[in-house]
């Protein structure tokens, strides 16, 4: 599969409505939008199509059985009626009428079942899209954070939305992300302490040690920006 998670090109102006935290600063509280329910088409549609095909097969096979049984009953009725009316020609019209009525009922049954099948497909599709969205959403969000990490940005992580699935996985990701962020912050603080102490001790640029200290200061500054 090559389309599990949307690539970063889907991110417009640093955010995708309802899902991606804006940067910098804290994100606002996002809500689900109908337009964004198909976040990960490959993953979501695969599951939706499989369940739909299965449901269509079950409904089709059983619908066919229902029609067969109904049709059989109608034919038996018509045949029974024919037996009764063959002795009385005056009842031939009545028999025709009943037979036509039964055929009409069979046709109505087919239409009713087709309508039921279409309704089922629609309702099930919508429900499955909503349901798979709850998995695709967290995956999309985490993959966005992964992109940030790949770019050397380890900013704060916000929670998933209410109702999202994969909460355990997200908690594990957040715990790791926060641990890495905290460790890098502590390290940057330690480096900053050396820079401050060296400057306080009169170590200035122009010497090899002084240049290294200044380079370290810039490194710490860049790191602090990455950790915002």
């Amino acid at each position: 599969m090559s389309n599990d998670v949307p690539t970063a090109t889907l991110v417009k102006d640093g955010k995708v409505p309802g899902d991606v935290p804006p940067r910098p600063g804290a994100r606002s509280k996002h809500k689900r939008r109908l337009a964004n329910y198909l976040i990960n088409k490959g993953l979501q549609l695969r599951y939706v199509v499989r369940v739909l095909v299965l449901s269509a097969l079950i409904a089709g096979a059983l619908g066919w059985m229902i029609y067969q049984q109904e049709h059989q009953a109608s034919e038996d009725l018509v045949a029974g009626l024919a037996d009764l009316t063959q002795k009385d020609e005056g009842l031939a019209d009545f028999e025709q009428k009943i037979a036509e009525d039964l055929r009409a009922r069979d046709r109505t049954l087919v239409l009713e079942m087709a309508g039921l099948g279409v309704s089922l497909v629609l309702i099930l599709s919508l429900y499955l899209v909503f349901m798979t969205h709850k998995v695709a959403g967290p995956l999309f969000k985490v993959s966005h954070y992964f992109d940030d990490m790949a770019a050397g940005r380890i900013g704060p992580v916000t929670s998933l939305r209410k109702g999202d699935m994969l909460q355990d996985f997200f908690a594990s990701f957040r715990e790791s992300h926060d641990a890495v962020r905290k460790r890098l912050t502590v390290d940057a603080d330690a480096m900053q302490r050396l820079v401050d102490a060296a400057r306080a001790a009169g170590v200035t640029s122009g010497t090899a040690a002084g240049d290294e200290i200044e380079a370290l200061a810039k490194h710490v500054e860049r790191r602090r920006q990455a950790l915002r």
Partner: peptide, 10 residues
């Protein structure tokens, strides 16, 4: 697979 590639990059 794509999600995993994102992780590897991270």
């Amino acid at each position: 697979i794509d999600f995993y590639e994102h992780f590897k990059s991270a």
